[in-house]
Write a protein that binds this DNA or RNA. Structure first.
Lengths: 126, 126
DNA sequence: ACAAGTGTATGAACTACTTAATACACACAC
DNA sequence: GTGTGTGTATTAAGTAGTTCATACACTTGT
């Protein structure tokens, strides 16, 4: 439950993102129970309302569901779950391409940069 | 002088970015005069103080210089100018790679996505 | 009954950023 | 000199979004 919050983006969105990543890589499975609002807040050292806000956001996106007086659980809707990875990917690529389009970079140079940066240090982290 | 401001980032930073892009692609040349604070504010429909803030930021970064009572000009320091493109590129790549690392994407899939998105519609825009 | 743990709701407080109103010093054109 | 256009500085107010404090309702275990 380690999250490195940056200062620019709202914390509750960073929490949402954290869960989406876990879902995308299969670390969170359909129907799996996630920490209660208060427990998450404790673990992540954020205000309980911030945790609530994050969960509310996830609920609205259909990522989790909540039964009365029980901690929320990851949705069992495989369609939604499958879309998470794609969504994160497409989002990142779109933003990257958009921000880089205006600089007129040859595509080969771009791909080389990405490849180098992406594979760099990949041994250490395994 | 068309800038599409987004709501998330401060306007003055988006203005700085706009100029950096123009510098990066060589559309703004060393020593070239840029609009006065008030004129820029008019054109971009922002408050003069916001324009001032952007120019101040650029001045601190050494991108522009200002002689008494004259509109600012692009720096003639080729070292700085050359770094702008690299800076924008590295920044974009870093952010992209960081945001995508957590999803465990095979490098080939990633490069394909970027390539496809980047070259898509490239005919229409020429 | 009671305590502890759920989710939920409401309104206030805080923060960063933007906008705004003015003011000042200077230079140049007329 | 007067007017206009530069850059610059100061201070206040407004705004949107986030975070926080607090309270409430419900369930379960004891």
């Amino acid at each position: 439950m380690n999250v490195n919050f940056n200062n620019r983006d709202p914390v509750y969105l960073q929490i949402v993102r954290y869960f989406k990543e876990k879902i995308a890589i299969g670390e969170l499975e359909p129907g799996q129970e996630i920490p209660s609002r208060r427990e998450l807040a404790n673990r992540m050292k954020v205000n309980p309302n911030t945790a609530q806000r994050a969960y509310k956001e996830m609920e609205e996106q259909g990522l989790i569901y909540t039964e009365k007086n029980h901690p929320s659980k990851i949705t069992t809707d495989n369609k939604i779950l499958g879309q998470v990875r794609t969504e994160l990917l497409v989002e990142a690529v779109d933003q990257f391409v958009t921000s880089v389009r205006s600089i007129n970079v040859p595509v080969e140079e771009l791909l080389d940069l990405v490849k180098e940066k992406y594979t760099e240090n990949s041994e250490k982290e395994v």
